[in-house]
Amino acid sequence: MISHYSMPFIRFVVAALTLMSFLTIAKRPEFQIELKNHLFFPSEIEIPENTKVKLIIYNRDQTPEEFDSFDLNREKVIFPEKKSVIFIGPLPQGRYEFFGEFNPNSAKGAILVTPQVPPQVSLHDIDNREFNEIGSTIAFQQNNLTESGVVYVD
């Protein structure tokens, strides 16, 4: 039975753990990649060193793909016409290659971890965008992404 005096302590522990949980999901830089015709677009993206980032991969193909990277120590299935999220880092500078397990000859790419801080683009610009057509995707990339495919969260 929980004593009368232990309740404040339990509340404190729960509150502290909840607070810590919120802290661990603080805003992170987001990066986006598209998979179309078994090719990654962009095939190379730059991310800042020593920073945990969120990589969102949109699979525009009608078949599943599995993102695989021994360098990044990540494996993730991306279902057809769905998106998947992969958390990467913090990493030191370097080149980290990845590929699609189902199409390893075409679906290839790399994460370039660089010391530069990528230019910031507001997430509000992309919140409600749809990626259903390749044309809109290209326009989106031209308007909002840097050459390295970076989208930065405020």
Binding site: V13, V14, T18, I25
Partner: peptide, 18 residues
């Protein structure tokens, strides 16, 4: 969404503690 993740993490921490 953030609240759900935080609750999941807190529950996990409690399970680990227990």
């Amino acid at each position: 969404m953030i609240y759900r993740k935080a609750v999941k993490s807190a529950v996990l921490s409690m399970v680990s503690l227990i």
